[in-house]
């Protein structure tokens, strides 16, 4: 048994070395730094957006509606960083106001859609049987109609304004959340810990509310956050088609829409800046949500487990 003596002598030799503090080396693939940059960039952009939307309109006493035909379609300058539109309104101010409306619509619609979707999905998943089948057929039916068409149909029942747009977006977007929540609940429902709860005398309500729903809430919240940009785009699309908000209300959609004409005339700024205002928050939210999704990943959570 040569190897035993080898090991023994090795152990003995190392005994002296044991006294000294070992040299620690970092191991493992550290992808954290790039991820951190992404998270911070996204977070900064979102904070900046929210601050701009909340603080700029009350702080700047200029009237975003003020028409000045002598200053129409001016290119970006120090006085008007984003230029002016075809009736001489300052575009930076219009964009911030537009973002304000778009964000409001986005957040409100995403929230409403998530609440509806979670409730429906949880009912379907937790009750199962014919309830599940019926509800999911309903979801399928709704999904088979193009979102925009359905949205237009809903809008047509109201007078143009912010809330009809919110309702229209919410009613077309809860379907995916319902699917996600139902699937998640179904997978949780077959876990032994649900069996243990049933065996421990928990009622159907308690199992759903105390054990199933908390398990899907992170997923639902993630879906809600990812839905905000989606809802903003939907609003923009509706407004661009002239079906969302009335054109005098600045939203990112109406801004792009009213700038169509000038774009053909070679004036790029009235479309570019509102467009950027749609894209940048979208990317920032997606970046942050991506990092969050990684955190939710059970593999990463159990990484530290021994």
């Amino acid at each position: 048994m040569t190897s035993i003596s080898d090991a023994t002598s090795g152990t003995a030799a190392a005994e002296e070395a044991e006294e000294a503090e070992p040299v620690w080396r970092s191991r493992g693939t550290d992808r954290r730094s790039t991820r951190t940059i992404r998270v911070y960039t996204s977070a900064t952009l979102i904070v900046a957006t929210v601050l701009a939307v909340l603080l700029v309109p009350p702080a700047v006493q200029l009237d975003q509606q003020a028409i000045d035909l002598s200053a129409k379609l001016l290119p970006p300058s120090w006085e008007h960083p984003f230029g002016t539109d075809d009736v001489g309104r300052d575009l930076l101010l219009r964009c911030v106001h537009g973002l304000r409306v778009s964000l409001l619509v986005g957040v409100a619609a995403a929230l409403a859609a998530t609440v509806i979707g979670t409730a429906v999905g949880a009912c379907a998943g937790a009750l199962g049987g014919w309830v599940d089948r019926g509800v999911m057929r309903l979801v399928d039916t709704f999904s088979s109609v193009p979102h925009l068409l359905l949205g237009i149909f809903i809008i047509a029942m109201f007078r143009p304004g912010v809330w009809p747009v919110v309702i229209s977006v919410a009613l077309t977007h809860w379907l995916s959340t319902a699917r996600i929540v139902r699937a998640e609940i179904l997978s949780l429902r077959s876990r032994p810990y649900i069996d243990a709860a049933v065996s421990g005398g928990a009622s159907r309500w308690r199992v759903t509310v105390r054990h199933l729903l908390p398990g899907v809430l992170p997923q639902a919240a993630l879906a809600a956050v990812l839905m905000i940009p989606h809802a903003m785009w939907h609003e923009s699309a509706l407004s661009f088609l002239g079906l969302g908000l009335p054109t005098h209300t600045a939203s990112l959609g109406t801004l792009v829409q009213s700038a169509r004409g000038s774009l053909l005339a070679g004036q790029w700024w009235p479309t570019l800046f509102p467009g950027l205002f749609i894209i940048v928050p979208t990317l920032a939210i997606a970046g942050l949500a991506g990092a969050w999704r990684e955190r939710l990943n059970p593999r990463r959570r159990s990484e530290l487990m021994l």
Partner: peptide, 24 residues
Amino acid sequence: SGCGKSVLASALLGLLPANARTAG
């Protein structure tokens, strides 16, 4: 379970998470 033997295996394969430090 939990005595560290799987961690030892991961260390030999270089599959430790980023918050790990090794010596020896």
